[in-house]
């Protein structure tokens, strides 16, 4: 078990990163730290993809020296997926940061529990 983890240390690290990010996003009360957790979680997935796509000893799929054999190159699809994933992750982070700014302007705190209590006091149920 430990041995398999050590051989696949990149994947193991990726899953650990995913776990750290996931728990941070779920349990942390501070909104900014939640966002950092989200980014760690996404990074974990990207690391996983990138490490799975890389094959030891092969080159990126750009033909420079006339070698046309596919076995000389790594699979470019995971890299493409990582790029798409990064774009998605950046846009989600931007939206969440703007929401956080809006909440901070209104309630002057980043703690989600406090904001919840404040919002209950501010506007009673209609």
């Amino acid at each position: 078990m430990i041995e398999t983890l050590l051989i696949n240390y990149e994947e193991a690290a990726a899953i650990i990163l995913f776990g750290i990010g996931f728990t941070m996003l779920l349990f942390h009360r501070n909104l900014i730290k939640k966002l950092i957790g989200m980014n760690i979680m996404d990074t974990g997935v990207f690391l996983f993809l990138a490490s799975m796509g890389y094959i030891e000893g092969r080159k990126p799929p750009i033909i420079t020296d006339g070698v046309m054999d596919t076995s000389a190159y790594i699979n470019p699809v995971p890299a493409g997926l990582v790029l798409t994933g990064i774009v998605v992750s950046v846009s989600v982070t931007a939206v969440m940061l703007s929401l956080t700014i809006r909440l901070f302007k209104r309630y002057h705190t980043l703690n989600l529990d406090d904001i919840y209590i404040l919002s209950r006091h501010a506007e009673e149920d209609r």
Partner: peptide
């Protein structure tokens, strides 16, 4: 209104957890 922003943040957090899990599953 303050309530919708708060609701949106909670909605987004849950959804991001879901998206993260979905992405991991797909990968």
């Amino acid at each position: 209104i303050g309530r919708t922003t708060l609701a949106a943040v909670r909605y987004m957090i849950l959804n991001l957890l879901g998206s993260g899990l979905f992405l991991l599953g797909v990968v």
